[in-house]
């Protein structure tokens, strides 16, 4: 079989300035959503293992709902569905950030739960036996160790969420994919442009991986 195509490097590079306009949106939705998702995950992850069922049950409900439905459906629901309830439109960027926050939050809840539960019971007992309160024991002893163990899983979730933002082209946020689609509509250079988009995603996700492994290595002493 003869491969009969040409990869036009010039076209690829020419698309870059246009694509880069989408980068801030991709980064903002990813990292804005993940930051909020981390707070949500911390709260719901701890509720999930609370002694009281009135804390546990809402957490289980939230986690199951947002882990069990596609993020694409979630963002469509927020962007097209919620305005009916709220009586006014929702900004596409806000909808994107909210969808990532809620979706990643559900997964991060489970990461937090797993991380905290992985710390040996003796650590908590040692803290309590020294007279530290429950909160102090968590703050100074359990959480720092749990957080360290959570880093790889959090890294995975970060990468998944960054890639999920590509779906949000459907609600018209001018992120990387959306920018690419508009560009291709005018230039018919799909091969080159999608290649460049893939490359840009790789740059973001690899940077995150490297930052986290650095953090993991620097933090690991014990």
């Amino acid at each position: 079989m003869e491969l009969n195509f040409q990869f036009d490097w010039q076209a690829a590079i020419a698309s870059l300035p246009y694509l880069l306009k989408g980068l801030p949106y991709t980064l903002l939705i990813s990292f804005g959503g993940l930051a909020i998702g981390f707070v949500i995950g911390l709260v719901f992850g701890l509720m999930r293992i609370a002694p009281s069922r009135w804390l546990r049950l809402p957490a289980v409900f939230y986690i199951e709902v947002f882990r069990g439905t596609p993020v694409l459906v979630q963002v469509l629901f927020i962007f097209y569905g919620l305005p009916t309830v709220l009586g006014g439109p929702i900004n596409a960027l806000t909808a994107g950030i909210a969808a990532i926050a809620l979706n990643a939050g559900a997964y991060i809840s489970e990461i937090v739960r797993g991380g905290v539960q992985s710390i040996e019971r003796g650590q908590r007992e040692a803290g309590l036996s020294l007279g530290l309160s429950s909160t102090q024991t968590f703050q100074y002893i359990v959480w720092p160790q749990a957080l360290r163990r959570m880093i790889p899983a959090l890294g995975n979730q970060g990468i998944v969420s960054i890639k999920d933002t590509s779906l949000f082209s459907v609600i018209g946020v001018g992120e990387l994919v959306r920018q690419g689609q508009v560009y291709i509509a005018n230039t018919f250079t799909a091969l080159e442009v999608y290649f460049m988009i893939a490359l840009l995603y790789l740059v973001i996700t690899l940077s995150l991986s490297m930052a986290l492994s650095l953090l993991e290595r620097k933090g690991l002493v014990g």
């Binding site: 040996e120 003796g122 040692a126 309590l128 036996s129 007279g131 530290l132 102090q136 100074y140 014990g222």
Partner: peptide, 30 residues
């Protein structure tokens, strides 16, 4: 618990803290 000390079978030292911080954490915080 503030007045009673305990030594465990598995030591249960805090692996993320230096030896010094293992010893000083409770006196400082409690």
């Amino acid at each position: 618990r503030t007045e009673v000390g305990m030594v465990f079978q598995q030591f249960n030292l805090f692996p993320h803290l230096s030896i010094r911080d293992n010893v000083t954490l409770a006196p400082r915080k409690v």
